[in-house]
Write a protein that binds this DNA or RNA. Sequence first.
DNA 1: ATGCAAATGCGAATGATTCTTAATAATATT
DNA 2: AATATTATTAAGAATCATTCGCATTTGCAT
Lengths: 146, 146
Amino acid sequence: MAGNEHFRQLLKSGNLKSTKHRNAILEALEKNDVPLTAEELYLHLKEDGVSISLSTVYRILETLVERNLAARFNLPDENKAVYELKHDQHRHHLLCVKCRKLLPVDGCPLEAYEKLLEDRFGFTVKGHQLEVFGYCADCSEKRDSK
Amino acid sequence: MAGNEHFRQLLKSGNLKSTKHRNAILEALEKNDVPLTAEELYLHLKEDGVSISLSTVYRILETLVERNLAARFNLPDENKAVYELKHDQHRHHLLCVKCRKLLPVDGCPLEAYEKLLEDRFGFTVKGHQLEVFGYCADCSEKRDSK
DNA sequence: ATGCAAATGCGAATGATTCTTAATAATATT
DNA sequence: AATATTATTAAGAATCATTCGCATTTGCAT
Ligand SMILES: [Mn+2]
Ligand SMILES: [Mn+2]
Ligand SMILES: [Zn+2]
Ligand SMILES: [Zn+2]
């Protein structure tokens, strides 16, 4: 219950009531530090003794995304959405197609490209979605030795 | 039935039989030049008088992706997959969040970034998924005048 | 033309996500 | 602290996208 006040503030900033479930989801998202599916969150909470309905997990996530406190996107070759907290520092991820591990990478290589798109196409860029996939260091090694 | 031989070759290159349905889907994908959902393809074929089962559409698309003749991915805020032919020139898309129009953009700004990731993380990059979203030229104008 | 493997139709099954409604909990007010 | 107001939640049904199973048809090599 330490950083609880932190979440309360965050929720207030989005005009949202501070509830046990919302706090628990924010905490799980913060603790894990990689994008998670609704069901993964549901199971994590359950393990932590927080009883919650799966549809509530979905509803809370939807709300967080709406209020711009979280982001929702799809990983390559997954037919379910994952969610992560919006960080102060915008980030992307490396997805290992073999072991499915996710490696967060801070920073973004696209500022210049977005300017170019605005100039060339008259498009007003609001954001982007970038996921890089391949083999992580561990899985690359194994592949080499073949 | 003009460029039909073209598709026949393409399919042969993937060890696939040339069928009416596969040719029709390749043709629809080529003609439209933007990523389409399975259902959109299904409806396009229907309009062109090609009777096909929706599950066959899914199966054909799955096969094309498997043989690396097509790509499957998700657009931001859509809970369904879209498909497009693999082009000689790798491309990305601008998605207008207002009118949902898609604008293909040839070329890719990520070569240098991927090298950097390989160096810094020992990750072997196999590919990426990048979609940029915002307001298209038309929708930007309307927004300005508010 | 014949045979066989591959492709398809069609409906059922599955999986993810959203919706509906009644019950409950969080804040504002007294 | 009790009450009123309103947002939130549980539970399961409903919906939507996608995959599966199996009987039938089709493409293609011989
Ligand atoms: Mn970025
Ligand atoms: Mn690219
Ligand atoms: Zn790996
Ligand atoms: Zn637009």
